[in-house]
Amino acid sequence: MAPNSGAFLSFMSQFIIQVNGSVYGSFASVSAFHFCQAALAQGHRIHKVFFYQDGVFNANQLTCPASDEPNLHQQWLTLATDHNIALVNCVSAALRRGIVSAQDTTENGLQSVNCAPQFTMGGLGELITGIEKADRLISF
């Protein structure tokens, strides 16, 4: 380790991100995504992005913008894979809005699945335990 790495680490923060805006139509999720990119580029850590309220629409794998537009859903998946970030939906907020995982489909007798498998369904408790673990919560 470089002699100054300790000093570098002391400036590093562990963030949890909360996204409350939809995948399209609100700028909240885009801003959250840009914040994540900037924070990671500066050496900070993001262990979890928690999607609440309309944020759960970011998990919709049927999101299908025109080819010359950004696909924010896909961008979240890529970021999460590249940086080992957990993408967690509030399951209650998601089910109310028709965002359903394979398990939800089975349990509720539904006919299709639209939640990308990279997004896990969790409770609000996952947000709280994430807040306890992180240095700072950033909400969008």
Binding site: A93, G123, L124, G125, I128
Partner: peptide
Amino acid sequence: REGLDLALLSASFEQ
């Protein structure tokens, strides 16, 4: 409504 859900849940997690 969703803020209230979070408030109650946070409190039940002893925050």
